[in-house]
Design a protein around this nucleic acid. Structure first.
Length: 291
DNA sequence: ACCGCACCCTGAGCGC
DNA sequence: TGCGCTCAGGGTGCGG
């Protein structure tokens, strides 16, 4: 579940392996909805191109190529973007973890879930994009081409202000948490950080967005920035399938206050953290701190 | 315009 | 041991 901090961590760590290098061969899996640009076209477009820079917009990574075209990557739920030189037990199935000595967990061998393999002219480490559940996306944008996906994104969550949040929430009847998850409103927030930010702000996730006050909007915006920046500092949350490009685990999962802590005591007041389902997704909150 | 929901997918974890 | 079931959820697109 890579969200903004995990995508940003990925960007920072994979950038040195992409920027300045010239793509040589490109290997892909078979055409599927994972490829918004068909693999054959992707291979043609990327071959021989030099990566100029790697940016992030919301949860998208955007690689700028030397012909002015762009490569969009989205990690979805289980996307993993990493170097072929990395070693991490997270690249193994859970059933295989632990049974191998560390030295045996040497190299990751591309499997059927490794949808994109970038080989470079300098013959250094390759870059792999793996995504078991294929909720991620790959798209190539021709020079000057607009991207509906990027254009749809709201303000990057790191830039959000209370005033903007307040304005966006007026006349909205959805739960405030669902508003935070709406990428057209705020780009980059996912389930973990929405829950954590609402806890930090003391606002219950079920509150109708339109009833959130100006003051609460300020608190949510500042809690969001705090939580996201802190998570980036710690290298993101390493839970589920997330792996950073160099294999190092993040540590933010140890700082969670409510996410995936159902039934455990609130770290502030001791009340049991509640889990409910909101918009098909689980939401966690402290019933006492978030009235 | 807005909202709720189904859907895409596979692996982990559970009960039996 | 293994089977079948449920759950996880980012984003899109549909019907109401």
């Amino acid at each position: 579940m890579p969200e903004l901090p995990e995508v940003e961590t990925t960007r920072r760590r994979i950038a040195p392996l992409l920027v300045g290098r010239t793509i040589d061969a490109v290997h892909t899996t078979a055409p599927s909805y994972f490829f918004l640009t068909p693999p054959a076209a992707l291979r043609r477009a990327l071959g021989g191109r030099r990566v100029q820079r790697l940016a992030r917009q919301g949860k998208y990574l955007v690689a700028r190529l030397d012909d002015g075209s762009r490569l969009l990557l989205h990690l979805g739920m289980t996307g993993q973007l990493f170097s072929s030189a990395v070693t991490s037990p997270r690249l193994l199935r859970a059933s295989a973890r632990g049974s191998l000595a560390p030295e045996a967990q040497s190299r990751f061998t591309p499997d059927e879930h490794t949808h994109l393999r970038l080989h470079f002219r300098d013959a250094g480490p390759e870059v792999f994009l793996r995504d078991a559940r294929k909720f991620g996306k790959v798209q190539w944008l021709a020079p000057g081409a607009a991207s509906e996906r990027l254009d749809r994104l709201g303000v990057d969550a790191l830039e959000v202000t209370g005033a903007a949040l307040f304005a966006a929430s007026r006349a909205r009847s959805v739960a405030v948490k669902n508003l935070l998850l709406d990428q057209a409103v705020l780009a980059g927030v996912g389930n973990i950080y929405a829950d954590e930010a609402l806890f930090g702000a003391g606002v219950r996730p079920t509150r109708r967005a339109g009833r959130v006050t100006r003051d609460e909007s300020e608190r949510i915006a500042s809690a969001l920035r705090r939580v996201l920046l802190r998570s980036i500092e710690t290298g993101g949350s390493s839970i589920s399938d997330y792996i950073s490009p160099d294999g190092a685990d993040g540590a933010y999962q140890d700082e969670r206050r409510v996410y995936a802590r159902e039934g455990e005591p609130c770290l502030v007041c001791g009340a049991r953290v509640k889990r409910i389902v909101l918009g098909q997704r689980s939401a966690h909150y402290c019933p006492r701190c978030q009235q």
